[in-house]
Design a protein around this nucleic acid. Structure first.
Lengths: 202, 202
DNA sequence: ATCATTTTTTGCGAAACGGTACAAAATGAC
DNA sequence: GTCATTTTGTACCGTTTCGCAAAAAATGAT
């Protein structure tokens, strides 16, 4: 299938290079990460990086989209899971916490929620991407609560969009708290209490 | 009291200059804001700025402390208010939303919650300041719910620290959503639903 | 072996950055 | 008026930044 191209072969794999760039942005910020740092992380030199991914912002947005895709996939899995509402939301939070604490020092937070807001004030492209992701989180969780309501886990009178926005808010907070260095224990407790409050009918 | 100093008088007021620097950081980020921009905003030139506030990070941290002080004062007012729990938390959110949307384009978010997380990963001083503020928010709101429980607004069995952390989480989210450009209507709705969920006994 | 093609590598260049040295200006003290 | 003192303004330094131009290297095609 993938017939070999004509010229000199690449010395890097675009997918892993993008992931390494993503991790570099994740461990810092957009403005705070230099092209030299990205080149060092990917093992490429600047011109190759530029040829492969465009300028710095383009590379950031490609990283952003990669993370946004993973998040959408996680939301989809959560909604489609054959589990009670409580278990589904709890598992979603657990997965998020594991990722937010996956850094070398266990304090990375969320790539999107921790690096994009700072830039959103001055960069309308990043801001637009952030808006899209926030809506996807709200929307995905709304589907989850809607499904829970249909399954009888929630009263028919429950406001599913309101609960979804609160559930999303806690996700935002988990991201910030994790980046501030909160322990897994603290984050787990917050997630568990939130699940109890939002998934048990009142 | 304030006897005049000996030399050439200052051409600026330190307090207003600090506020102007704060607003400049607020409208951008720490790494993304240049000393030239700060000098232009304050009307001072770089050497004066340096003499008055130290280097860039020191100026950022002074701005941070100023905002943290205002936030603590708001929390204190909320806890000490002679109001039912629901009204007190609702007013607190309303005040926050007004500030978060006070920018020229109505999309500033929170200085601390929107600019500090990005830097927290690489700067331990900023991270420490962020940790302190997060704890102050959690702690202040915990006192509010504790007071509500004592006043009978909440069941004696209610977990006040859990509710406080969820209330704080929604504040974090309001900050992010505001910076992403959410309307006052959206933010008000989220705040109101949160108040209803957290302040009514279940 | 030679050529066309693609990538890598080296190195440049213009701009922005944070920070400071130093002289000029503006005040009070005498 | 003269001096000491403090702030302002100009100008500069070394570094880092992003982005690119141009040459060198590595492959397939012929």
């Amino acid at each position: 299938m993938t017939e070999k191209p004509r010229g000199r072969p690449r010395s890097y794999d675009p997918d892993t290079a993008l992931w390494q760039a993503l991790e570099t942005f994740w461990g810092g910020s957009f403005t705070g990460t230099s092209l030299d740092a990205l080149a060092a992380a990917t093992g490429m030199n600047r011109p190759s990086l530029y040829a492969a991914f465009g300028d710095k912002k383009s590379l950031y947005l490609k990283s952003f989209d990669l993370v946004a895709g993973l998040m959408k996939a996680a939301l989809r899995r959560t909604v489609e899971a054959e589990k009670p509402l409580e278990a589904a939301l709890g598992d979603f939070y657990n997965e998020a916490i594991a990722i937010y604490r996956s850094g070398p020092d266990g304090a990375r937070g969320c790539f999107i929620l921790c690096t994009a807001p700072a830039e959103a004030a001055t960069d309308s492209d990043i801001r637009a991407a952030l808006v899209t992701t926030l809506k996807e989180i709200d929307g995905g969780l709304a589907m989850l609560f809607e499904k829970g309501k249909a399954a009888g886990d929630l009263s028919p009178a429950a406001d599913t969009t309101a609960r979804a926005q609160i559930a999303a808010s806690v996700l935002h907070s988990l991201a910030i708290r994790a980046r501030a260095g909160a322990s897994k224990k603290e984050l787990d407790a917050l997630a568990q209490h939130t699940v109890q409050m939002l998934c048990r009918d009142m």
